[in-house]
Design a protein around this nucleic acid. Structure first.
Length: 113
DNA sequence: CTGATGACTGATA
DNA sequence: CTATCAGCCATCA
């Protein structure tokens, strides 16, 4: 395990920890914020390895709004239940994913609820 | 070394 | 809207 990857894993964990309550982010979104846009799969791996660290891992979904886990699996259920308990609307095992907005301007002036 | 794998994605039909 | 498909990349057999 290279030192580089360990550091990046720490960045990924920080990014995930920074996701606000009631919001979700895709694996690719996390990877992009962590500085490695093509490493969505590694984000998934890191989350799996980081279980038990108190991270809000349930706020990280696939790009299509489904959980990363297989449908019906324990993790799948757990993730959706946690999201619901945070007020996230879950319909047919899916959530509404935010559009790729990273700039502050886009976040503030973008889609008004 | 090669090939398979996976909590993935984006383009295309 | 769903269904395929070719990329992607660290890790492991």
């Amino acid at each position: 395990m290279s030192k580089d990857s360990a550091e990046w894993a720490a960045v990924v964990r920080a990014v995930v920890a920074a996701i606000p309550v009631g919001q979700v982010l895709s694996y690719a979104g996390v990877a992009r914020r962590a500085g490695r846009p093509r490493h969505a799969r590694l984000v998934a791996r890191i989350l799996a390895e980081s279980s038990g660290m108190g991270l809000p891992w349930h706020r990280v979904m696939r790009a299509d709004g489904r959980p990363g886990f297989a449908e019906g699996s324990p993790g799948w259920r757990e993730q959706l239940q946690r999201l619901r308990s945070e007020g996230v609307e879950v319909r047919a095992g899916r959530v509404r994913m935010p559009r790729a907005v990273d700039s502050l301007d886009a976040a503030l002036w973008g889609p008004p609820p």
